[in-house]
Design a protein around this nucleic acid. Structure first.
Lengths: 358, 358
DNA sequence: GATTAGCACTCGACTCGATTGAGTGCTAAC
DNA sequence: GTTAGCACTCAATCGAGTCGAGTGCTAATC
């Protein structure tokens, strides 16, 4: 694999990314400054095809990069273009300053911005580190008659809250007793370990009203579930229709369906966790596990919003997506985040203990 | 406009809704049990066209309903089919039992279910009655070092909450003082009336730390804004691609873009508020204000989740959408809601006053 | 030995005319 | 008022023909 072949391959991929049409030898011969005739290029192209970096849609058409070709391109030839769009940098900065408990809001705005500047659909999700979903403390705040706000703080630093309904005659004192018991008994437990058996044990304590305890426990469990499920956002689905590779409406429908399901992001997440911790993850065509994504590529990055919150943002596009630009935008985002995002955010210190707030 | 014409018009619309192809006289002559020859039908069709209920895509094609035709159909000929799908009724029931503070979660699940059973894209939003966004009380709960949960209860009965960051050295007492002052001073004010001037006035009170007060006030304002913006959900965008009228990918892109923008739902909302309070709202083609929606119809209904929360759910489809089925599904939803939805929900009584929770 | 010019060949895309057939409107008969 | 009959319209479909971008191979050239 000599240098010239690499140059030719790169030129072909660049061209194909731009036009979406199979590229021929004449075209490359002219574009490339090596003074080579189309015939020579053809020979090289035939070699590249044999090596598996190119494919031919049909005999008399030009060449198209194979997944392997893209992979080589992404791994070795990517020189991220500078994104000099000051406006989008400013927008990014502003978004990232959205504060921590508005993580979901921040994600929503970030997906929109990214889909606008890249022209691809975006998926973003907050990564929950299940192992660390250990209860640090549980607080109950009566808000109105019948309504109590349950606030669960986890060791990982996230705060789930939910309003629950308790019997009308529940007194502030009764609720206080339950709060005390829960804070001491649930501390250190995983949320997932809350079950009927635990409820039974707890209800044996003095002065605990089961008809208040049960909705509280249910509220704790649901606060987390709700949190997880709300935390995936997509935007720019319409961009799918921009690309001729998805002009077949059945294909487009599949992709848009995937975006709406949001399930496939899990795949990416696990992939990334397995990965070598590189800053960006790229999955090309057949590298995607999901069969429906065989014609797509995903470029994803993780972002540490603060020491306990990590966000994953993925760009979905056709295999011939503009990797250079996408990678550069995602990197920019990261750099903005490092300069700005951490400012003023809580680095996750130990909080008050149960008694402190009285 | 005699009875026979109506029968013929109905048959034509039914047929067109089913097939999406212009319908001819022969077809109707056979389908209709009136013993009429195609020629007679043709005469009637010509009349109906003259009256504006039908259109002809081109001279030698069959007839297609005009917007006016659909309107007549919807207003006078709709006999909602029974939806005998027990499973979806059960699913609806379960969804509607999602409790009140999970309104957004409930909406999300409802949109998904509806898009699945109707096969159309769905938009759902919670209607905020801006005039009633009057503060009933404000509560502050210290959750951790630097983090305080602000809970705003409005006269309308909704509860907004948000976590804010305060200076590290803020004490529970200092926060308590601010809570007391805010509760008495903000009571009865609209959230939108909070501004710099008000902040200045408030900060003159004894013992108020401005560096705590400001983030709290900002939190109150933002808690509401965030609430509003989060409260529109869409699902089933992929269904747009199901219908040949949107096979032109530019059209499809516009519609999907509209769904993602979510802005247009406001139009529907205002329309519905102007309306005669009928239970369902139908807007057909050119009746839609938005130019991009000229090829669509919207069927929407409002649902009172409880005495203070109203939800709007809209079905977007091509003009030849299956009105009978959609109307019937939305009505079913309403009836499920009346039987089940209100069970156990708080009818919005007066809550505790500020002092009660200490 | 690498490069290139030349040439025959391939095959999708496009054009264009002919054909088809569903459907109409009109007229005259029932 | 209804219907049979007929001429007419026009989108859709089909197939033959053409075009042209692009290839692979061979032989000549550097």
């Amino acid at each position: 694999m000599d240098d010239r072949k690499l140059k030719i391959l790169e030129a072909i991929i660049d061209e194909y990314i731009q036009t979406g049409e199979p590229v021929g030898s004449r075209n490359i011969s002219k574009k490339l400054d090596l003074k080579l005739s189309p015939a020579t290029i053809r020979n090289e192209m035939a070699d590249l095809e044999e090596m598996g970096y190119l494919e031919q849609p049909h005999t008399s058409a030009g060449r198209v990069p194979s997944d392997r070709g893209y992979r080589l391109y992404v791994d070795t030839m990517l020189s991220p273009r500078e994104v000099d769009d000051r406006e989008s940098l400013a927008a990014m900065t502003e978004i990232l300053e959205s504060r921590i408990d508005e993580l979901s809001y921040m994600l929503q705005r970030a997906t929109r911005l990214l889909s606008q500047i890249t022209g691809y659909p975006i998926v973003a999700t907050a990564q929950t580190d299940d192992d660390r979903e250990v209860i640090k403390n549980v607080q109950l705040f009566p808000v109105e008659v019948e309504k109590v706000m349950v606030v669960v703080t986890t060791e990982a630093g996230s705060i789930h809250n939910r309003i629950i309904l308790v019997p009308e005659d529940a007194t502030v004192e009764e609720i206080g007793v339950i709060a005390k018991v829960l804070s001491s008994k649930l501390h250190g437990l995983e949320i997932s370990s809350i079950d009927v058996a635990l409820a039974n044990t707890l209800s044996k304590h003095d002065g605990i009203r089961t008809d208040i305890l049960l909705p509280v426990l249910q509220g704790i469990v649901e606060s987390r579930r709700r949190n997880e499920e709300h935390r995936t956002y997509t935007d720019g689905a319409k961009n799918v229709l921009e690309y001729p590779e998805f002009s077949d409406s059945a294909r487009a429908k599949e992709i848009i369906g995937m975006l709406e399901e949001k399930g496939f992001i899990r795949d990416v997440v696990t992939h990334m966790e397995d990965g070598e911790g590189d800053d960006l993850y790229v999955s090309i065509g057949s590298e995607n596990r999901d069969e429906k994504m065989q014609d797509c590529s995903i470029v994803a990055g993780t972002y540490d919003v603060d020491s306990t919150h990590r966000v994953l943002i993925g760009v979905i596009g056709p295999k011939r997506m503009d990797y250079a630009r996408v990678v550069s935008v995602l990197r920019d985002m990261k750099s903005v985040m490092n300069r700005k995002g951490l400012k003023g955010l809580n680095p996750g210190k130990q909080g008050l203990t149960e008694g402190d707030r009285e």
